[in-house]
Write a protein that binds this DNA or RNA. Structure first.
Lengths: 215, 215
DNA sequence: GCTGTATTGATAAATTTTTATCAATTCAAT
DNA sequence: ATTGAATTGATAAAAATTTATCAATACAGC
């Protein structure tokens, strides 16, 4: 099917745009609007209105009303549900350097029902706590991951130790890794890695690739 | 043209994969290999070998050799050149909270010839310096941006002040913004925004979207 | 020097994704 | 109630992207 129904599988491109929709819709909601048109969303995000309608049809059964558009709050909750923001997710941080500590202190996660349960580091002087979150030695990773059923981890170690830390995470049972180290990681089948490369992100901003819509 | 020559315009999708190639190629180089095959790259990154060859043909004029593959170091320098890593880029950080400070201390940028020239904050008690980088009051943004010909900025203020800070950056002459605030920004034509939404990134990791290849 | 094989680069096909068009619908205004 | 305008959802067309196939090539081993 290639219509607005959600018959076919949702596309990766659509999923990648959902967080942008969500951000914008919350902005709209906070300004007090009850309805929003696909054209308004498209305008703000720099994409086409038809594309917006198709994307929304995938994740929401709400039919838009002619002359009004879509109910903002319904869209928000449908997207959040689709993205899994309606369930709590436990994550760990591996690497308690500057960036790792910043993440421990980041308040933004609570908003998305993400619990950072602990951080881990290899060097003894980092052990302790930051922002009320404990920092354990790396040896305890498996124990904590099992205890909290952690499925995802944020990797913030230096480049040199990235693969070793990654291996430890996989070994501990983590299935999804958000990697801030500028290193290429090798993982077994079934483990996902997402790279957050600040320098690369910056570089791509200039490459005349103005994509306001990625996640 | 739809062949391996670089006649047609490079695709956005290809550009998005280049940083991943670069990471992997550096990994390969550091292991001492002189040649690498498209199949090896494809395997490591979870994409198709034909796609890898097409992508590489866009940014490198190097012909791969049958039975050997591509010269790793040539590929690296070609990709770096294409992505602009061979020229220095000055950036500023707006928002000197935990994350902003972590970015000031991040060493990874030097590797990509990115100079973080200064940070800015609205609250007087943040003024000073971190990691040898000055933190100025926001009022001086325009002055510093002009003096260093800064074209890009990293936004690390809280959600509530994101749009205001963004406006100040645009006003100061910044044309590309890497936004860490979980807020939807409105910018004039010609200004690019890239969103780095930690929570969204984490959420997408679970959505059975194992894309190891994005930037 | 031959032979076999891995690997490339091209062409072509298939698939996915985006964009265009338009009748149908609902609200607002008269 | 009727009219007009905005907006949707569907279908169709176009464009972009990925995947498949294969002859040509250069190296490795004999």
């Amino acid at each position: 099917m290639d219509s607005f129904g959600q018959d076919s599988e949702i596309s990766k491109a659509t999923v990648a745009r959902l967080p942008a929709y969500l951000r914008f819709l919350k902005e709209v909601a906070s300004r007090g609007s009850w309805y929003v048109s696909s054209a308004a969303i498209a305008e703000a995000l720099g994409v086409s209105a038809v594309g917006v309608r198709k994307d929304l049809a995938f994740v929401s059964s709400q039919a838009g009303k002619p002359k009004r558009g879509f109910e903002v709050n319904t869209l928000i909750s449908d997207i959040e549900k689709f993205l899994g923001y309606d369930e709590r997710t436990a994550v760990v941080v591996v690497g308690a350097g500057r960036l790792g500590k910043a993440i421990l202190l980041y308040e933004g996660f609570e908003h998305f029902r993400i619990d950072v349960v602990a951080a881990f580091d290899i060097s003894p002087e980092k052990i302790g706590a930051v922002g009320g979150k404990p920092i354990y030695p790396l040896e305890r990773l498996g124990e904590i991951v099992r205890r909290h059923s952690v499925k995802a981890g944020i990797l913030t170690v230096p480049r040199e130790s990235a693969q070793r830390a990654c291996d430890a995470m996989v070994e501990a049972g983590i299935r999804a890794i958000l990697n801030f180290a500028p290193a290429s990681l090798t993982v077994p089948e079934g483990v996902s890695v997402r790279y957050e490369d600040l320098a690369a992100s910056l570089a791509m901003l200039f490459g005349s690739v103005p994509d306001k819509n990625q996640g």
